[in-house]
Structures are given as C-alpha cells and as structure tokens.
Nucleic acid binder design. Structure first.
Lengths: 215, 215
DNA sequence: CGCGTAATTATACGCTTGCATAATTAACCT
DNA sequence: AGGTTAATTATGCAAGCGTATAATTACGCG
C-alpha cells in the first residue's frame, strides 16, 4: 500500500537529450530575462523537470552555464558561415557579411546572451578559454576567406597583410551586429547589411556591393 | 546615561558627494565583480557607509544603477571627445579614433561595465532611454566631425551621405573597443589604434594615418 | 550652549538563491 | 514477471538578497 501522493509522473530520457534541453532552457532564459532570471528553478521549469535533476547532470550551475555558452558561440559561428555560399570567394565573403548582421545571427536575444555571458568570462578561466577560442575561430576563418578574395585579385595574401584586415572586418561586423541587436529600432530594414558590405569592401579596397546575389 | 555601544562614528556629507561616492562604488564593483557582485551591502561597504544609507539617497537599487549607468556612458563619451583635438578636422578625427580604442576609454573594466548594464537596458525603459541617447549622442558628434572632414576635401557632406559613414565608423570603433577590452592579450600595443585609423580612413576614402600627430 | 532635525547606523523581516539529501519510480535485464 | 538500479521527484537548509523601520548622532541655528 503505497502512499501515492500526487507525485509528478515522468519519463526517463537519455543523458544527451536532457542535457540539451537544460542548455536550451538556460539560453532562452538568459536571452529573455537576463542572467538574473536564469535561476536553477526557472531553468528546471522551462525544461519541464524539477530542479534536482539539474544537479544530476551538471555538478554545479557554473558547469551548465559553461555548456550553454559553448553551444551558443559555436552555433553562432556555424550559423554565420553556413550562409557564406557562392561561386566566387568574393560572393562568399559578401554573403558572410550580410548574414552576420541579419537575423537570426544578429538579433536582440543573441546580443543579450553574449553580453550576459561576458561578465562570467572575466571571472571563470574555462569561460575565458571558450571565449578566446570562439573569437579566434571566427576571425581565422574570416582571414582565410579574405586571403582567397585577395589572391583572386592577384594581391598579396600572406598573414602579415591579412591579419589586420581580418581584425578590422571582424570589428565592423561585430560593431554592426551589436548595434543592430542592442538598438533594433535605430536602423531601417537592410540598412545595416548595406553598410556592412560597403564598409568591408572599403577596408579591403574593392567593391563588394551586389556580389552576394551574383551567380 | 546613554548605552554607548560600539556604534560606528560617521561624518555628515552633502547629498551630492554621497550620491557620487555610491555611484563610484557601484561602477567599481560591477566592473570588477560583475553585476552579481554589486549587492547593496557590497556597495555600501566600498563607499564606507552602511547599507541603510543607500535607501536614503536612492529610493531603490534600480535607481542607483540607473544613475551609475548614466554617469558611466556620459563619462565615456566625454573622455573620448576630450582627446579629439587638433588643428584640422582630419587630425581631430584621427585623434578621436585612436582615443576610442586606447585606455582609459578602451579597457576591460569599461567593457565589462557596458556588458553588465546591457542586460538591464533590455528590461528597464529608463535604461533603454539612456542607452539610445548615449549611442546617438556619440554617433551624431562623430557624424558632424566626418562632415567637417569631407567638406574640407570638397566632398558632399549632407546627412544622407554622412549617416551611413558615421554608422560604419562607429561600428569599427565599437568593435575594436569591444575586442580590445574583452580580449586584451590578443593584440599588440598600438595594433588596434593603427587598425582603427587605417579602417576609418578606408571607409571614408582617405588617408588618415599619421594625421593625429600632425601640427 | 542646548535644541531640533536631517543624516546615519542598526536591526530585522520575508524571499529567493544554489545545493544537498532522502524518497520514489520508470525502464531495463535475465 | 519481478528484482535492480539509475533517473527523477520531493523536501529541506543555510546563506545572501533587497527593503523596511526604529534607534542614534552629528551638526547648524537661535
């Protein structure tokens, strides 16, 4: 004769699915409510489990946040480069630039997420590592693409020349990404994309406008 | 016969001085420990008062944070433009660009502060207002300076042309400011400044290099 | 000099937080 | 089938949070 209170029914799930659900819940909460809103209880509720389960999969909340940060940054880079398609290197670069300042990569939630994590990046060595890896990962791929574009034009394309260009292009992209996400109403539809393509073209000394649609 | 416990001695101060001390303590804590570390108790301790006094000057902690944010952003803009001196508009622009990506404007604390506040910007209408005012304040002054520079070269300088240029230049500056602050060890001394001057020059279609030292 | 009052301290309350631990139960194994 | 065990829930705890309120005290003013 069991007491049979109104104890909650549940299904057992694989560790990976549960972890991912918890990570998703964490990201959603930080994006919408800020780091402050991402409490253990709120995360559990959004993932439709009870709070104790979090401890079963992540030995501490810090670990969960680290996992969430890693996934978010990886997804951001991947999402951006996935759209960098085209016949010519120049077209791929233009497409990449446009994708960087256009939803879903550039939106208020992504920026809020990024900013929310930055605080913890300064205090947690593991977070710092993910941050550095993510930044360099993006920039190195950007530098490689820039090198391709320059080579196509018969211009010097070794790293000494390309590195500062990549840093500069990355900065414009980041700046516009940030401002678009933090102040969405300050710009017209497509305005940021046009400015981004124009500016990256200027920095590289070539005309990139229109190339994202070519071929 | 007073009980005379070891009650803390204190000095009375003007409202302005106390408010400013509390604001300074708040900014310092957010920069160093993150928003999480800026508790009422920690702020009071750093300002060398007891926590009750905060409520005497700010009716809520939110108000204190708003005051701190306002002061920080205003100081940042002011600090930057204060260094934008020079005989020619071109020299002033170059100096402004360099100052934007050089300490004390660009440093880890300032960036951390900015990121820490961004969360609250999305949730508090008053914070949002300060954010928008601060961004546009900086960009409008930048646009005016760009217009001067273009006019000197005999180029068109109305707002339709200058606005996108100002947005783009602002973005490079912000991007480099951000990356320098968030990842200080990834760049060499002066590297960001050189890239910034180079890139802004490219965007505006002119050579800005070296002008910050001229005259 | 002593009185009044605003500035400051002291204390406490109710809530939320992250984390620990014990009780339960769904699903797999033979 | 039924026992085993890992996944999940339920409950509790100590610490820290922002805020409220009452008790003190420094200081200007007559």
């Amino acid at each position: 004769m069991t007491v049979q209170g109104d104890r909650r029914k549940f299904r057992r799930e694989g560790a990976d699915q549960r972890k991912e659900a918890l990570v998703r819940a964490t990201l959603g909460l930080i994006a919408e409510e800020g780091v402050r809103g991402a409490t253990v209880r709120a995360i559990a509720e959004r993932a439709e489990v009870t709070q104790g389960l979090i401890r079963h999969y992540f030995s501490t909340k810090e670990d969960l946040v680290l996992a969430a940060y890693t996934q978010h940054m990886d997804a951001l880079t991947e999402q951006t480069f996935a759209k960098a398609e085209g016949a010519t290197p120049r077209a791929r670069l233009a497409a990449l630039v446009v994708a960087s300042v256009t939803p879903p990569v550039a939106d208020a939630g992504s920026v809020a997420l990024w900013a929310g994590f930055l605080t913890q990046v300064r205090q947690d060595a593991r977070m710092q590592e993910v941050h550095a890896r993510s930044y360099h990962g993006f920039r190195d791929r950007l530098e490689a693409l820039i090198a391709e574009v320059l080579a196509q034009d018969g211009r010097a394309a070794d790293s000494r020349d390309c590195r500062p260009l990549a840093i500069a292009c990355n900065a414009v992209i980041d700046g516009l990404w940030l401002e678009g996400g933090a102040l969405p109403d300050a710009f017209q539809e497509g305005e940021l994309a046009a400015i981004a393509v124009q500016s990256v073209g200027a920095i590289l000394g070539m005309n990139l406008t229109g190339t994202e649609a070519q071929e």
